[in-house]
Amino acid sequence: MSWKRKHLLDIESLTADEIHTVLDTARAFKAVSARAIKKVPALRGKTVVNLFIEPSTRTRISFELAAQRLTADIVNFTAEASSLKKGETLKDTARNLEALNADIIIIRHSATGAPHFLARFLNASVINAGDGAHEHPTQALLDTFTILEKKGRIAGLNVTILGDILYSRVARSNIWALLKLGARVTLCGPATLVPKVFEQMGCRVSYNVEEAIADADIINLLRIQHERQRQTMFPSLNEYISLFGLNRKRLALIKPDALIMHPGPINRGVEIDSEIADCHRSVILEQVTNGLAVRMAVLFLVNGGKGPQEIGAA
């Protein structure tokens, strides 16, 4: 078990061993949140900046609380109220934050590779909290953590990711993590949003939802990312609901012990029926709880990561 990385930029470059290190560490940190005193001094005196150039509630609050539980100081930076509006470049903004002695910068940005770009010139550690449609590594780590906790293993499980795959960074990070850990991944959704090219990553692609969910141990639902679609990708929302939405009729087809996951925010009545989101098979809120533990683990690990790290030319 080892972790030597100074940054967490994506899942693609991690080894299965490194993913397991994060998950094992997260297990220890999850216990901290169950104590009467939910705080440890591991990052005492460190400064963490949430550099969120794209809106987020869940991830930002999760990182903020994670940093606080580790006794770090955290500053929130949102694009709306910043000098980016006044024409400052991302590079200058990040350099300014570093001049304030930030130790860890957590970045969310609509452009693919923005975290890798920062990691190339910053001395601070960089954590990717979502870059465009590319990756969202901590989401994949908390999803695999939840699966591991519930199922006791990942290798050999059938995981079906259903919905907007093309524009989803959650899907890409999850695919990398699940394949590295030995799961079988099926992708399903409208052909425009689930191109066959994903088969090259090692996934199975299906356009028949009933078939895709029948033997799944895990069904991970994704929201339609209207904000990223440059054109209409399917005829109508109602058609999507009737062809791919998880409703009661389809729920009857799945394995009795299958888990239903969703990274949030959920659109009730679209990708998932309201009653299913709240049913006993849904682990959606546990994902949120586990997200805190995983982000504590990531902050703890990158803080200890020393030495140079190869940043692949993006």
């Binding site: 080892s2 972790w3 560490t25 220890a28 940190f29 216990a31 591991a42 703890f300 200890g304």
Partner: peptide, 22 residues
């Protein structure tokens, strides 16, 4: 008890492996 989260030398070395505290 795992003490890695309470160490005063976290900066001086690689991140220690955290074991469960029970």
């Amino acid at each position: 008890l795992d003490v890695s989260m309470h160490r005063d030398d976290l900066d001086g070395r690689l991140t220690p492996t955290v074991h469960p505290t029970v």
